[in-house]
């Protein structure tokens, strides 16, 4: 009598085989692909709109072959979809698909990231002015930053399921930057400038305020630090303010 492991090996081989089986095993063969495709489409609805349903099915099967699910929780399967698309569409007019997928995955990650309480602006304003340059700001763990040399934010906004496509988008519109952050009911996207993006990237890397500001000014001398900080506090995106030169986590917490 075959052992359990041998039966499961044989069963798996039929499911994974590219040849479609006859008879009832067809159901399992189909489910394996259909369940994966459905879950992937929920995570990348704009990619599905852009490529069309049939093409998305083909892409999902190719992606599943290269990156099969390793978890009983299908929410993880999209993690490498953008890099798969980058390879699939490199040197093609659709190379921007990969960056759209990066944005969609960032949205998904934002939705499920851990909750952290925000601090109010007094955490920063209470800090002595001479110490401000060395202050480090910790951002919400759910905050995601997106940038692309293509107008992916425009593409994403135009092709979301809850909006109607409004004509052709000229790729020559060029680079776009955005932050994706948690809101009470889900997530929101806000466009930002290249300088603001550089500032936030530096903060995410735990840079001191003066260093992050320098990165922003290197891109745009008109960078408005006060306005950006006001928006970050307003949207509850700052969770800690550390003063001093000590590394993050052991500094003086102004909360």
């Amino acid at each position: 009598m075959p052992t359990l492991i041998n039966i499961q090996r044989a069963f798996s081989e039929v499911i994974l085989c590219t040849t479609v089986p006859n008879g009832p095993m067809l159901v399992y063969h189909h489910n394996y692909r259909a369940n994966f495709r459905s879950a992937l489409a929920l995570e990348f609805p704009v990619i599905e709109t852009l490529v069309g349903k049939h093409c998305f099915t083909v892409l999902a099967q190719q992606y599943q072959t290269q990156h099969p699910s390793r978890s009983g929780d299908l929410h993880h399967i999209g993690e490498q979809f953008s890099s798969f698309l980058a390879q699939e569409y490199q040197h093609s007019p659709y190379a921007y698909f990969a960056d759209v997928a990066v944005l969609e995955w960032a949205w998904q990650e934002c939705l499920i990231a851990p909750d952290t309480l925000a601090v109010d602006p007094t955490a920063l304003t209470a800090c002595a002015s001479e110490r401000l340059p060395k202050v480090r700001l910790q951002l919400q763990p759910s905050l995601r930053l997106v940038n692309s040399k293509w107008p992916v934010v425009t593409i994403w906004e135009t092709n979301r399921s809850d909006s109607s496509p409004t004509g052709l988008i000229e790729l020559a519109l060029g680079a776009e930057w955005a932050l994706i952050y948690r809101t009470l009911g889900g997530a929101a996207l806000r466009r930002c400038s290249a300088a603001e993006h550089a500032f936030l990237i530096a903060l995410k890397a735990q840079a001191e305020l003066e260093s992050a500001v320098a990165d922003a000014y290197a891109i745009d001398a008109a960078f408005n630090l006060g306005r950006l900080l006001e928006e970050l506090f307003r949207d509850a995106l700052i969770t800690e303010v550390y003063a001093g030169v000590s590394p993050l986590g052991s500094g003086t917490k102004n909360t």
Binding site: L4, R9, Y32, S69, G72
Partner: peptide, 24 residues
């Protein structure tokens, strides 16, 4: 069952109803 060789089929797959499966 649902996994084999590190891959998850994300489906509810039937077991053979044997003593070995029962013990498992």
């Amino acid at each position: 069952w649902s996994t084999y060789n590190g891959m998850h089929h994300n489906d509810l797959l039937p077991l053979p109803y044997t003593d070995e499966s029962l013990m498992h």
